[in-house]
Nucleic acid binder design. Structure first.
Length: 649
RNA sequence: GCCAGAGUAGCUCAGGGGUAGAGCGCUUCCUUGGUAAGGAAGAGGUCACGAGUUCAAUUCUCGUCUCCGGCUCCA
């Protein structure tokens, strides 16, 4: 007998060689039906794999990430089997799970190509294979055996993978006629898969390297119940409705023009209003935190970027240098604001008493992003950073860093971004050539970030090799409507630029010292932030932020003048209002303006004109009764005040 | 930049070798209304751009541009 410890710390005895499934059966039939995989001493195993010694065991179902992963991983194999059925000789790369589903990278026999309409037949075949209820069987093999098997299959991709594995750690999984190299774990058999949707086909470089062959990546998702697939598809449709590119057009916030150029957004009046509102908000927050606004030009002498190191790193992939009529004179569109801010720092001698110096600028920068990478407002070639650079003494670094985290918290709170990830990006220790600066400075900078996050109690994940080339950073990532992650706020510690620009301050000891620099952009960029904000709110911006706060709807054209009077009163009190004076019935005006997501609708007709009032209707809520324009203005101002209370006042 | 798909009216889309259609929007007229779509008439298109095939191309072929889904990249 072996002792099995369950998550509630209860210990039960089972015969040696019992499996996770055996354990589940003793708990309940329901659990035995639902369980998908099992963790044995922290390692996720197949449900049917015998447990030979005492162990801590946890059973995973669809509700656990581990359970879903097992399910989707087996689904990837099922898809591979179906693809092999239609295209014998296909070579298989890797087939991992992703956030929603799985993919498999495949290399079809020459002459074959997968197109969208092939997916349907593969889906059908997958369901057919699933219904046949093939057991999924694990076997442990030697490296030589594995190499032999895949040499016979002619699958060079798998051979390359096996070549890198250690002998004795190699396992295969077989189901029906299909065998794949795989660490597992997997479902007991294929019949668990009840619903299949192959979502799209894309190209992907073998092993993520653009020098390698392009494989065909097939994405899919599967479910244990047909109903779950239906719900998932509805969810995707709903998400598409929130897409900022769609809503941006619909709400007339921004547009693009081929004549202007790729990735160069044009902000329409309402979008510009929204942006101005966001900038104003951030300016106030930053003022409270002791920042000074500066303004710098959109271009700079090439030498400036040679000093900063950006020219060497990105020069050939940037918008190219701007020549002037003068011989040898060269400028660049600025790809970032830091070099300009360093020059402002240098414009006069600084004392230790002056530090920290906090310089903020809504700085527009231009980066020649790869054409295939451009995406709505989230990835563009000309954008405005809510940038600031803090120059501080080494002893002030951590405190300053923590204050920047506070600012980001304020912003996320104001806009109700509760679901974000914080990521610490460090250098890749194996690739020192990718970075500038001394190991010692990197060490100091990385430690400062890690400690500041700990002291703020911020839950973070750490990624090696994701740092900027001049320093480590802390990024805040938010997901868009379709679950794609975008980096918003970023904070970076930099010991390198101060050195390159020879920045100094005079210390209490009357000697010259080098300040430390913090780069930070809580929004990331105005463009990306607005994009994520649109998807987050589905276009229903909070009252304080939304471009049109109020629309006045005259009942008939006879009351247009009164409506304009009301609107003027509101605009005079700093409330953004418009009048819908179209020759339409009131029902129509209400409908159209509700759909435009304007928070307050004021209906004015004979009654209101006579009593000098407005009938208030709140978007999505309906009639709120009558009051004077002044009373309504006070109500709006109070609501705005409530929304912003404690954020910067 | 790479792989795959797409581009028809301001928007959403249908059509298809004989130079185009719907709904919404827009303009004008009728209507002057009370809390989610009143009625009528009208304007608006080099069918992304450039070549080729053809008696004839918006339709077929090739190229270019842009957009979409991924990959790579992201100071």
């Amino acid at each position: 007998m072996i002792k099995i410890t369950l998550p509630d710390n209860s210990v039960r005895e089972f015969p040696k060689g019992s499996s996770g499934l055996d354990i589940a059966k003793t708990i309940s039939n329901r659990l035995a039906n639902d369980v998908l995989s099992v963790s044995v001493n922290g390692e996720v195993w197949d449900l049917t794999r015998p447990i030979e010694a005492d162990a801590a065991v946890k059973l995973y179902t669809w509700d656990d990430r581990e359970g879903k992963e097992t399910f989707w991983h087996s689904s990837a194999h099922l898809m591979a089997e179906a693809i092999e059925f239609f295209y014998p000789g296909t070579r298989f790369g890797i087939g991992p799970t992703v956030d929603t589903g799985f993919y498999y990278d495949v290399d079809l026999p020459s002459g074959y190509q997968l197109v969208e309409k092939d997916l349907e037949k593969i889906e059908k075949k997958m369901l057919e294979l699933a219904r046949e209820k093939h057991d999924i069987v694990r076997s442990q093999v030697s490296k030589a055996e594995a190499l032999k098997l895949f040499t016979e299959k002619g699958d060079e991709l798998k051979l390359e993978l096996i070549g890198e594995l250690e002998d004795g750690t190699i396992s295969l999984y077989n189901q029906g006629g299909f065998t794949d190299l795989c660490r597992g774990p997997h479902l007991p058999n294929t019949s668990y898969v009840k619903a299949v949707k192959l979502t799209n086909i894309a190209g992907a470089y073998w092993r993520g390297n653009e020098k390698n062959k392009m494989l065909t990546r097939v994405y899919g998702v599967t479910f244990p119940k047909q109903k779950m697939l239906e719900e998932y598809l509805v969810m995707i449709e709903e998400a598409k409705k929130r897409d900022h590119r769609k809503l941006g057009k619909e709400m007339e916030l921004f547009t693009f023009s081929e004549a202007v150029g790729q990735g160069l957004p044009l902000w329409l009046p309402k979008g510009a209003q929204l942006r101005a509102q966001l900038e104003d908000f951030l300016r106030r927050v930053q003022k409270k935190y002791g920042y000074d606004q500066v303004i710098t030009p959109h271009i700079g002498d090439v030498q400036l970027y040679k000093t900063s190191g950006h020219y060497e790193k990105y020069g050939k992939d940037s918008f190219q240098v701007i020549k002037t009529p003068a011989e040898g004179e060269e400028y660049m569109l600025k790809p970032m604001n830091c070099p300009h801010h360093c020059e402002i720092y240098k414009s006069k001698p600084r004392s230790y008493k002056d530090l920290p110096v906090r310089m903020a600028e809504f700085g527009t920068v231009y980066r020649y992003e790869q054409s295939g990478e451009l995406h709505g407002l989230t990835r563009v070639r000309g954008f405005t950073q809510d940038d600031a650079h803090l120059f501080c003494r080494p002893d002030q670094l951590k405190e300053e860093f923590k204050k920047v985290i506070d600012i980001i918290f304020i912003i996320f709170k104001a806009l109700e971004f509760n679901d974000y990830n914080a990521q610490i990006s460090l250098r890749d220790p194996d690739k020192p050539e990718k970075y500038i600066g001394t190991a010692e400075n990197w060490e100091k900078a990385e430690r400062a970030i890690i400690e500041a996050c700990q002291e703020k109690g911020l839950k973070t994940v750490t990624e090696l090799g994701e740092a900027a080339f001049y320093g480590p950073k802390l990024d805040f990532m938010i997901k868009d409507a379709l679950g794609r992650s975008w980096q918003l706020g970023t904070i970076q510690v930099d010991y390198n630029l101060p050195e390159r620009f020879q920045l100094e301050y005079i210390g209490a000891d009357d000697k010259r010292h080098r300040p430390v620099m913090i780069h930070r952009a809580p929004f990331g960029s105005m463009e990306r932030f607005v994009a994520v904000l649109i998807e987050h709110t589905a276009g229903k911006f909070p009252l304080w932020l939304t471009p049109d706060q109020v629309v006045v709807l005259p009942i008939s054209e006879k009351y247009n003048d009164y409506a304009r009077t009301v609107s003027n009163i509101l605009n005079f009190s700093d409330i953004r209002s418009v009048v819908d004076d179209r020759n339409e019935k009131i029902g129509r005006k209400i409908r159209d303006n509700e759909l435009k997501r304007i928070p307050y609708l004021l209906i004015v007709g004979e009654k209101e004109a006579e009593s000098a009032t407005v009938s208030v209707r709140r978007q999505g809520e309906g009639d709120k009764g009558a009051m004077t324009a002044q009373e309504f203005a006070a109500l709006v101002k109070e609501e705005v005040k409530m929304q912003l209370t404690g954020l910067y006042n």
